[in-house]
Write a protein that binds this DNA or RNA. Structure first.
Length: 674
RNA sequence: GCCUGGGUAGCUCAGUGGUAGAGCAGCGCACUCGUAAUGCGCAGGCCGUGGGUUCAAUCCCCACCCCAGGCUCCA
């Protein structure tokens, strides 16, 4: 007998070699799939390791039943659905080679190489789905088998990608067996004395059978996989390497229930509604003229107004926080970027050179070298430090056409960039102040869910280990002081700098990387920067790069999507729309507009050339925060009917001065309430 | 860059081997209205660009340009 501690059930005894399904309570859950509030069991965690429900229990263990309605359960469902998709593709295109098919955050994909270099098209998705539904209807069991390497290779002798994976696995496992045997190595079970093993899953149905190399676990049968949808076709390189064959990838999603599936599809729709590129067009904010070129936006008056507000805000905050404004040009001699090292390690992202009077010039990809020149223009005293140089600096970077994405990824962008020069003693305090400053600024925009990532020294690095340690410790200290949760990305730093990246979560739960802070361990040396210390000796300053928004363009994209285009009053390009009921009220409308404008509000008036309802509708579609309707009664009593965004019931008879006070308060508080 | 999908009026989209349509937006006229679409009319197009096939191409073929999605998440 083995003693099994089942979470939520208690300690039970089972015959050695029994499966968790032998437990009456589990059998019952499986028999009545809809009864349990947590969903149908799809797998089991034995001492924390996910296993098939049919895995036999050979020794005492702590066991948790994994249901479809959990993250782990969904990933089992998705992974299993990927197998079904592979089977369907294999059935429809005999001779298909299949590569890998993992679950992802919200779904799964599988990479294929079709015979004869064929490609999938969108209509193929329907055929594949149809075949998948047949496989699901057959309820094919997923049966786990374990084989030695040689046997594994022979099972997949017509599947070169699987062979490559098995061979890699064999090498890796051999190494691990020889080594200390790390955790999480259940990919193949290297049982002592038996050599490395690989696991495969075989499902057999009335129409066909299918075998795939897989670590598992899987749901008991394809009958568990009813709620899926294939989403899109894409190309992807084997192992993500563009020098290797390009495979055909199909993305899909799968869920534990029809409700969960349709909720997810609705979420996708919602994200589409919020797409800043669509809203940019609908709200007349910006566009990308092909006459100018990919990734180079022009901002229309309303979009430029939003930019202006953001930039004014950034300037004001920075000046208030002790930053000094600087201004630098957009091109420079190539020699500057040779000295800075950009041409050595960033040339792929730089525009090609321009010749002028025998000298070679480049568009600037970063502001730092020029800010350094400002610092280095004369000898500096410790009394001047920390020196914080700030610029809304426009830079140009060559991004491959495939990665451009609206305002979020462009080729010309404006960074709210600053470089802080300080003494080693000041570094810690500066970073602490800086992280607090970043978070305060971001909070102003209505974000409150932050997470940071601290990237440490990579294998290839420049500088001294001691400097890296000091800088990395200072960054970590700043994060701790700010009480922000962070994870450490070991070895993910740039070769010249450890860094902090700050991520935030938007209104529909998507993560965006915004701010970045780096302690530069290379440029001060390259440019021979120094300051005279209290000891009358020259010392090298520390240099911190940082941007809060990242780029103004990208931050705008984020705000538009976060607020679904309904920007808070202080950011809205038009804050108030005045709508006279009829032409006889237009003079009063003008008067009201004038008063609001005098109070600093951004106002538009829409004349009575079409029905009131139509004009209000247009204002709503433009997501204007306030629509003021003025008619006879208002002229009498110096009021307006206030229609607030998001509210279906307008408030009649509001005194103009009261409205001004309300709107001004929203602006001053930079409130996100409306 | 590569794979898939797409480029038809300002926007969203329909369409056919005989050179084009709708809705919204725009303009004009009428309507003058109290909170999400008033009516009528007008105008608007090198059907992405270049080549080819054809009596005839927006449609079929080839090349190119542009846009979107994907190319990290290791059976």
């Amino acid at each position: 007998m083995v003693t099994v501690d089942v979470e939520g059930v208690g300690v039970v005894s089972l015959h050695r070699g029994s499966t968790i399904k032998d437990l009456p309570v589990v059998a019952e859950m499986l028999a009545r799939p809809d009864s349990g509030e947590g969903g149908t069991p799809v797998a089991v965690a034995v001492n924390g390791e996910l296993r098939d429900l049919s895995a036999s229990l050979e020794s005492d263990a702590a066991v948790r039943i994994v249901t479809g309605a959990s993250d782990a359960g969904r990933s089992v469902i998705r992974h299993s659905t990927a197998h079904v998709m592979a089977q369907a593709v294999r059935d429809l295109w005999p001779g298909t080679r299949y590569a890998i098919g993992p679950s992802t955050e919200d779904g799964f994909y599988y990479d294929f190489e079709l015979p004869g270099g064929l490609h999938f098209t969108d209509t193929d998705l329907e055929r594949i789905e149809k075949r998948m539904r047949e496989i699901v209807a057959e309820g094919q069991p997923f049966v786990r088998e374990e084989h030695g390497i040689a046997e594994g290779l022979s099972i997949f002798d017509d599947q070169p990608y699987k062979v490559e994976i098995i061979e890699a696995l064999a090498g890796e496992t051999a190494g691990r067996v020889a080594g200390e045997g790390e955790a999480g190595g259940e990919a193949s079970n290297a049982i002592a004395g038996e050599g490395p093993m690989v696991s495969v899953y075989r499902n057999t149905g009335s129409s066909a059978s299918f075998v795939d190399l897989c670590r598992g676990p899987h749901v008991p049968s394809t009958g568990y996989l009813d709620h899926f949808k294939l989403l899109k076709v894409a190309g992807s390189y084997w192992r993500g390497d563009e020098k290797r064959p390009q495979l055909q990838r199909i993305y899909g999603t799968a869920w534990e229930s029809e409700e969960a599936l349709s909720a997810y599809l609705k979420r996708l729709e919602e994200a589409e509604m919020r797409d800043h590129r669509k809203l940019g067009t609908d709200l007349d904010l910006f566009h990308f003229p092909s006459e100018i070129g990919g990734g180079l936006p022009v901002f229309h008056p309303k979009g430029a107004m939003i930019r202006t507000i953001l930039e004014d805000f950034a300037r004001k905050e920075h000046l208030g926080a002790g930053y000094l404004p600087v201004w630098t040009p957009h091109v420079a001699r190539s020699t500057l970027y040779e000295k800075s090292g950009h041409l050595a390690w960033y040339a792929d992202n730089m525009y090609p050179p321009m010749e002028m009077e025998g000298a070679e010039y480049r568009l600037k990809p970063m502001n730092c070298p020029m800010h350094i020149l400002v610092y280095a223009n004369k000898s500096r005293s410790y009394r001047e430090l920390p020196m914080r140089l700030f610029e809304l600096g426009t830079v140009y970077r060559f991004e491959r056409s495939g990665v451009l994405h609206g305002l979020a990824r462009v080729r010309g962008l404006t960074q709210d960039d600053a470089h802080i020069f300080c003494t080693p003693e000041q570094l810690h305090g500066e970073l602490e102040t800086l992280v607090a400053f970043v978070l305060e600024v971001l909070k102003t925009f209505g974000f409150d869910d932050f997470e940071a990532e601290l990237s440490t020294r990579p294998d290839k690095f420049v500088g001294e280990v001691a400097d890296w340690d000091l800088a990395t410790d200072a960054l970590a200290g700043a994060l701790s002081a700010a009480k922000i949760s962070y994870r450490v990305a070991e070895g993910e730093g740039a070769f010249y700098a450890p860094k902090i990246d700050i991520h935030l979560t938007d209104a529909i739960g998507r993560r965006w990387q915004v701010s970045t802070l780096q302690v530069d361990l290379q440029l001060p040396a390259r440019f021979g920067l120094s300051y005279i210390g209290t000891d009358n000796e020259r010392h090298q300053p520390y240099m911190v790069h940082r941007a809060l928004f990242g780029s103004v363009e990208r931050f705008m994209a984020l705000l538009i999507e976060h607020y679904a285009g309904a920007l808070p009053v202080w950011l809205a390009p038009v804050q108030v729309l005045v709508v006279p009921v009829g032409t006889s009220h237009e003079n009063y409308g003008q008067e009201v507009s004038g008063r609001l404008a005098a109070a600093g509000l951004r106002v538009e008036m829409r004349q009575a050339d079409e029905p009131l309802g139509a004009r209000i509708r247009k204002g709503k579609l433009e997501k204007v925060p306030y629509i003021l309707v003025v008619g006879d009664e208002d002229i009498q009593s110096h009021t307006a009917g206030v229609n607030r965004r998001g509210s279906s019931k307008p408030q009649r008879g509001v005194k103009i001065e009261d409205f001004i006070a309300e709107a001004a308060d929203q602006v001053v508080r930079r409130s996100s309430e409306l």
